[in-house]
Amino acid sequence: MELASYSDYAVRLVNTEEPARRKDSLTSVEAVRELFGSSTQAARRAGDADVTRFRGVRARLRAVFEAADRGEQEQAVHLLNSLLLEFPVSPQISGHEYLDESGNPRWHMHLAEHPSNATAGYAAIAAMGLAFHLTEYGVDRLGLCQAAPCRNAYLDTSTNRSRRYCSDRCATRANVAAYRARKRREAEDPGADPERTGRTEDSPQRTSETAEPSTPPTPLPATGPAER
């Protein structure tokens, strides 16, 4: 497993909270354990105290993404370094669970679980994974979704560093909103020069996930908040 893949731990934890929507799914020991995924041994160590501890680590990880989103690279690195110092990792060589065609282990680096408590173990892996991703791909690859009110964290792996949304659904929702806003402006001022808005019918907004539709999109359901 590539060490940068451990950065998903950070994204999963940060996205348990949606501040703009006042939603927080990290409210129980069961929610904490679900974050560990297939690592059941580490999950079993989680207790009631870890709910509060995980929330504290979550706030610090979100601060890293927020600094990166603002373009404050040095601040993002400083915040991440403080987590690395507080939650050190224990790297180990592993491979017996991955065998090649001849039955020999495919050796790779593995971040061992921290023995003290569930929060320390998860924080160490999340911080180190995020650090590997940051140094491998750049600080600007850490982002927060631009489709208001969603501010979920994401890791940009696009070839042209163009990602702005956490999912295709949010990208589509943002493009639909932009399309409707432009149509309203045109209806209010039919003689307006489209160049004043910085956009024309022939040059729609571009995103990494999806482009703005050139024909009226199908309206989203209006029965409540969109599920994501």
Score class of each variant (00 low, 15 high):
residue 39 S to L: 15
residue 35 L to S: 07
residue 198 G to M: 06
residue 9 Y to M: 11
residue 25 S to R: 02
residue 118 A to Q: 00
residue 129 G to K: 15
residue 95 G to Y: 01
residue 202 D to N: 14
residue 197 T to H: 13
residue 148 A to F: 11
residue 25 S to N: 04
residue 184 R to P: 13
residue 204 P to I: 06
residue 213 P to E: 02
residue 177 A to N: 09
residue 221 P to Q: 01
residue 187 A to K: 08
residue 111 L to E: 11
residue 56 G to Y: 03
residue 160 N to P: 09
residue 200 T to V: 05
residue 33 R to G: 00
residue 155 L to C: 01
residue 96 H to Q: 10
residue 96 H to N: 11
residue 209 E to M: 14
residue 102 S to V: 05
residue 94 S to I: 06
residue 96 H to M: 08
residue 160 N to T: 10
residue 123 A to P: 01
residue 201 E to R: 15
residue 11 V to W: 01
residue 1 M to L: 05
residue 29 V to W: 12
residue 183 K to Q: 14
residue 199 R to Q: 09
residue 90 S to M: 14
residue 9 Y to W: 09
residue 85 L to P: 08
residue 146 Q to A: 14
residue 52 T to R: 12
residue 14 V to E: 03
residue 139 V to W: 12
residue 206 R to Q: 14
residue 140 D to M: 07
residue 165 Y to V: 11
residue 183 K to S: 11
residue 222 A to G: 00
residue 19 P to V: 02
residue 41 Q to I: 15
residue 69 D to K: 03
residue 214 S to P: 05
residue 54 F to H: 03
residue 99 L to Q: 06
residue 66 E to K: 03
residue 224 G to C: 01
residue 206 R to H: 13
residue 81 N to P: 15
residue 193 D to Q: 06
residue 18 E to Q: 11
residue 40 T to Q: 14
residue 43 A to Q: 09
residue 182 R to V: 08
residue 172 T to R: 09
residue 208 S to V: 12
residue 138 G to V: 01
residue 75 Q to I: 14
residue 35 L to Y: 08
residue 50 D to I: 15
residue 36 F to N: 11
residue 113 E to S: 09
residue 216 P to G: 06
residue 60 R to S: 06
residue 21 R to V: 01
residue 203 S to K: 12
residue 55 R to D: 00
residue 174 A to C: 10
residue 210 T to V: 13
residue 110 H to K: 15
residue 49 A to F: 05
residue 92 Q to E: 02
residue 147 A to G: 05
residue 79 L to G: 02
residue 141 R to G: 14
residue 135 T to Y: 15
residue 138 G to M: 07
residue 157 T to A: 01
residue 192 A to Q: 12
residue 29 V to S: 02
residue 68 A to K: 05
residue 132 F to R: 11
residue 56 G to A: 08
residue 195 E to K: 15
residue 124 A to W: 10
residue 27 T to K: 12
residue 84 L to G: 01
residue 124 A to Q: 12
residue 72 E to G: 13
residue 106 R to G: 02
residue 167 S to I: 05
residue 22 R to H: 03
residue 135 T to K: 09
